[in-house]
């Protein structure tokens, strides 16, 4: 598991070239900036189509939308074949590329335990094309292809619990992070980078345009996501060892997270309650797993 990092330990040097081409208050831009502050130079960054984040100072390559897993595999195997194991194959993908259009290929790469590190900025829809539904879209969120009307209440399904889907592949390291908790995020990047095998870090990256809130509130929204249990911060090793990194005495009500976001504006009290019950039940499972230090299937 990763080791705690403190504010003074954050390097002053940037790993990205700014300004970038993102919207104002972009969570993905924050995720990229934090990630590449500690990623170091000895990487090949892989990208597939996704919303802009930040250009990093590292060499980069990429592939088609559905090609994240295979593309990383090719690089990792070539690095091994060429004897350059000092270089790491890493990725900075979006939620769509990770667990929607690219899910199949990435799952297979995980199952083969390819020596790659995937960082996913999860903004819960295809923001690059204007906010369409992806596997990351949470239940009831209004996306541009989950319209709200008499016949539809926004996204009809819960978002993919991707961390646990990858845990089923018994890969060495899985973690979640949030842009509101930079020290935690960077500690995980640092730790995961040097592990051998498939590792993945999922970063919740709020999107002011797609989630429809004031751009100044990106961190506020991300923080309340963690504090309400919607986006818990945890690590899973070898598919079973489990650690919760942030454990408030009491969760904040999810309304604190939902309210500022107009994508949830249409939700009825019953629907909010449903999500509250769902979130609390899951949180209790996480607490239990944390106590046992492992996931019990």
């Amino acid at each position: 598991m990763s080791e705690r990092m403190t504010r003074p330990q954050i390097p002053l040097e940037e790993g990205v070239i700014t300004p970038g081409s993102t919207c104002q208050g972009c969570g993905a831009a924050m995720a990229a900036r934090l990630t590449f502050k500690v990623m170091g130079p000895n990487v090949i960054r892989h990208g597939i189509p996704c919303c802009p984040d930040q250009s990093s100072k590292s060499p980069s390559t990429g592939s088609v939308f559905e090609g994240g897993g295979p593309c990383l595999t090719g690089t990792a195997r070539a690095l091994k074949a060429l004897g350059r194991t000092d270089i790491k194959a890493i990725a900075f993908f979006g939620d769509g590329g990770t667990y929607d259009i690219g899910f199949g290929g990435l799952m297979s790469a995980a199952q083969r335990n390819e020596n790659v590190f995937v960082v996913t900025k999860d903004n819960e829809a295809y923001m690059n094309t204007g906010g369409q539904h992806s596997g990351g879209s949470p239940k009831y969120a209004e996306t541009t292809t989950d319209a709200v009307g008499p016949n539809s209440r926004g996204s009809p399904v819960h978002k993919i619990n991707a961390a646990f889907a990858f845990a089923a592949m018994n890969i060495p390291y899985i973690a979640t992070a949030s842009v509101a908790f930079p020290e935690d995020l960077m500690a995980k990047v640092k730790y995961a980078k040097d592990i051998e095998g498939f590792r993945i870090l999922l970063i919740q990256s709020p999107c002011p345009v797609g989630w429809r809130y004031d751009p100044a509130k990106t961190i506020e929204v991300a923080r309340s996501g963690v504090q309400s249990g919607i986006w818990p911060l945890y690590e899973i090793e070898n598919g079973s060892s489990f650690k919760l990194n942030y454990k408030p005495k009491e969760l904040k009500p999810i309304t604190e997270y939902l309210k500022p976001q107009a994508r949830f504006r249409h939700m009825t009290e019953t629907e909010v309650n449903e999500i509250q019950v769902y979130t609390t039940a899951k949180w209790e499972k996480y607490l239990k797993a944390d106590e046992l230090k492992q996931i019990v299937f």
């Binding site: 369409q132 541009t144 292809t145 989950d146 319209a147 709200v148 009307g149 008499p150 016949n151 539809s152």
Partner: peptide, 11 residues
Amino acid sequence: TEYLSELYASG
């Protein structure tokens, strides 16, 4: 797809 989603939602 967005317009279709709206038409779907509106019934």
